[in-house]
């Protein structure tokens, strides 16, 4: 589904991502883990065309590295950006509606809103409230719900646990688990390696802008080096 070759990101003279190759098969759930500054978010942003980058990115065989970022939604791409990026002064419902911005099938949008509310009942309770007044976890749910509104085939999630209390992190991950159950392909960037690996099929460990290790998630959870470096054991 997603094929990344030789991805490079530079900030001024600093090279944040150096030649990343990454494949995500349809329906697969892949976690990108690593320490702060390893280049995870830069990789994800570069794939979503939110950052200028070198290298090739293919979505279902179609080269997208020169496609303007706003056209990716139509191709089945949905990014939940770092820091959630909810539209703070719009209501929860309006946020979800913005997620369907490129769609014009009104009846189906209504149905999808109900579907998202079914997945995230908390949002239904708060439908009329402005997103900026929600808690961090609820905002994360809004961001995920909004991404789902475009009916993505590939979901890119950037640090969904950031800034959340441990209980809220579990809730948000339960939500993600439910969301990806119906076959959405997932690329997840996450510092909480244990949670990310427990959710995903495969993990890629990033360090110094490179992917140093790729293995099935269960294997990584047992890998002594990974355990020592990222699982705090």
């Amino acid at each position: 589904m997603l094929e990344v070759r030789g991805l490079e990101v530079h900030y001024g003279g600093i090279c944040a991502v150096r030649g990343v190759d990454l494949d995500v098969a349809a329906g697969e759930k892949v976690a990108l883990i690593g320490a702060n500054g390893a280049g995870k978010t830069s990789t994800l942003k570069a794939i979503a065309r939110m950052l200028p980058a070198r290298g090739s990115v293919k979505l279902e065989g179609e080269a997208i590295e020169h496609a303007p970022p706003h056209t990716l939604v139509r191709k089945g791409f949905a990014l939940v950006p770092e820091g959630r990026g909810v539209f703070a002064r719009l209501s929860v419902l309006e946020n979800l509606e913005m997620g369907a911005y490129v769609r014009d099938d009104k009846a189906a949008i209504e149905a999808d809103i109900e579907r998202v509310f079914g997945l995230l009942p908390r949002l239904k309770e708060r439908a009329g409230q402005t997103a900026g007044t929600l808690s961090g976890g609820e905002q994360q749910m809004v961001a995920i719900g909004r991404a789902l509104m475009s009916r993505p085939r590939l979901l890119l999630l950037d640090e969904p646990s950031m800034g959340l209390s441990p209980i809220m992190v579990d809730t948000v991950f339960d939500v993600i688990r439910q969301v990806v159950q119906d076959g959405v392909t997932l690329l997840l960037v996450e510092q909480n390696a244990r949670l990310a690996l427990s959710l995903c099929d495969r993990g890629c460990v990033m360090d110094g802008g490179e992917i140093t290790l790729t293995a099935p998630a269960t294997e990584l959870l047992d890998n002594p080096a990974v355990r020592a470096a990222y699982l705090g054991e």
């Binding site: 970022p69 706003h70 939940v80 909810v86 539209f87 719009l90 913005m98």
Partner: peptide, 11 residues
């Protein structure tokens, strides 16, 4: 409200 998110929504 948020330019990156707006772009991610396809604007």
């Amino acid at each position: 409200e948020d330019e990156v998110a707006a772009r991610a929504c396809g604007i």
